[in-house]
Simulated scan of single mutants.
Amino acid sequence: MIIEIRKAGFVNKGAELMLHAVMQKVQERYPEATLVMAPSHKGGSQPFHKLTQLGFYPKAWLWRYGIQWGDFAGYLPKKLREMYGLVLDKDVDVVLDAAGFSYSDQWGVGSSKDLARSSKRWKMRGTKVILLPQALGPYKKTEIQPWVKQWAENADLIFAREPDSYKHLTDLVGEQNKIKLFPDFTNLVKGTLTANYDASNKRIALVPNYRMVDKTSKEESEAYLPFMIRCAKYLVEQGAQPFVLVHEGANDQMLAEKISEAVGGIPIVKETDPLHIKGILGTCDATIGSRFHGLVSALSQGVPSLATGWSHKYIRLFEDYGFKDGVVTVLDTDEELHKKIDLLLKPESAQPLKQQLTEKSEQLKKQSEEMWELVFAEMDKVAKK
């Protein structure tokens, strides 16, 4: 079986964590399967050298001017394609889409248009198309709606990550048996640590996210960095040993440096491996962050956390873990903020919270396993042909 993993790349660490999550489960179930990805240019999210390092075969794939230029690779001699490991789109049996958050008004019509056109081809060829748990919608803009309807019709299974996403999609395309509700699936991935990582002076992670600057209102955008500095300052005053964890990218690094400098130079940790990032978060007593998958990584390991977010997915995530009070706003007063941070610091509140998160995590992991069984039941239809 040839399986394509789509929209999970190497720039966004949440996307890369999803990539590892998919790889682990698929290789457990289908150890002989060939995994493929469509490579991007060198500076893109799926550069050739990175996907081949993980054992992926490249798929010939390039939409330009409404034409799929990758199809022309079919004119190359088969032996030449085999020599370079090049896979044609028509040879793919299953497409697993792990976009995370791409098909929505917020990210524009492009992604939905691309999926609509691509899924039409796949449906005609009998290729299975499965959208793994992800945030979807809203779909208020009229230009995106016909494309969403097309890819929803063409997909074999669609998993919304929380009730808002489920409602956004079903309000547009109607209730369907193939549209289901399951949580984020990276909770099953185990984190790792480098041999030399020292967690002794790094007890509470601050995880900034530049999306809180460029995806929020002007008032929230301007308040975000001061908010993170206020958190860091209070943690230092309480002797809580905070550090800043760079989850990804130069903009997050810039925020980390400004936070650290403002409170006397607390440690900054930058890690490129998403499995190591999850491992680091698992060693913490608590986290305060804005990176969605950083929060999933913490909560799924029973680490008490506070979140600021720029979309509905943050609120629903904390509802899944029974800790709605863990979502704060950058406009909270110092008094409000300190009360929330004290929930993480004081043993009488932190220990019961940790126990609650651990119990909820086990429930959500069971749901993720159930989701994979539904995915595999659909994929088995191909495997048995």
Rank of each mutant, 00 (worst) to 15 (best):
F159P: 09
D114C: 07
V109C: 12
K128H: 02
D164I: 13
K113W: 08
F159D: 07
T186Q: 03
A98W: 07
S111I: 09
W107M: 14
A155P: 05
T142S: 05
K140C: 04
L115M: 01
S112N: 05
L188W: 04
P163G: 10
V92A: 00
W151Q: 06
V129K: 00
I130E: 01
S119G: 01
A152T: 09
T127L: 02
P163H: 11
G108I: 06
V148G: 08
G126P: 04
L132G: 02
L96Q: 00
K123T: 03
G126N: 04
Q106V: 12
E162G: 09
N177A: 12
I130S: 00
S111F: 15
T186I: 01
K90E: 14
K113Q: 08
Y139Q: 04
W107D: 15
A152V: 14
Y166G: 07
T127F: 04
D171N: 03
D91A: 04
A155E: 03
Q134N: 08
W147V: 06
K113H: 03
L96N: 01
L157A: 09
K180C: 06
W147R: 07
T186W: 06
D164H: 12
Y166W: 13
R125C: 01
P146R: 00
I144V: 04
P163W: 08
W122Q: 02
G110P: 03
I179V: 07
K128G: 00
F101Y: 15
Q134L: 10
L131D: 09
K149E: 12
D97Y: 01
A99V: 10
F182E: 02
M124D: 10
L172W: 06
E143T: 05
R161L: 13
V148I: 13
T170V: 14
K141T: 09
A152F: 13
K120L: 04
F159N: 11
S102R: 13
Q176E: 13
D105R: 06
D171T: 09
W122D: 02
V148E: 04
L131V: 07
E143S: 11
L131P: 03
S112W: 06
G126R: 09
W151R: 03
D97Q: 13
K178Y: 02
N187M: 03
H168F: 15
A99K: 03
S102C: 10
P163K: 01
S104W: 14
S112I: 11
K167H: 15
L96V: 00
D89F: 09
G108Q: 05
Y103D: 07
E162N: 11
G110H: 11
V129P: 01
V129H: 00
S112D: 05
F101N: 12
F182P: 01
L136Q: 13
W122I: 00
K120H: 04
F101E: 11
Y166P: 08
K178T: 06
R161V: 12
N177Y: 02
Y166C: 11
R117E: 07
D184N: 08
V95F: 02
L181R: 06
A152I: 08
M124V: 08
S118F: 08
D105Q: 05
L132Q: 05
M124R: 07
A135L: 15
Y103R: 12
K141R: 15
W151E: 10
S119Y: 00
Q134D: 13
K149M: 09
R121H: 03
R121F: 08
Q134I: 11
Y166I: 03
K178D: 06
E143A: 05
Q150Y: 14
T142V: 14
S102F: 12
K180P: 11
H168N: 14
L188M: 02
L188C: 02
N177D: 09
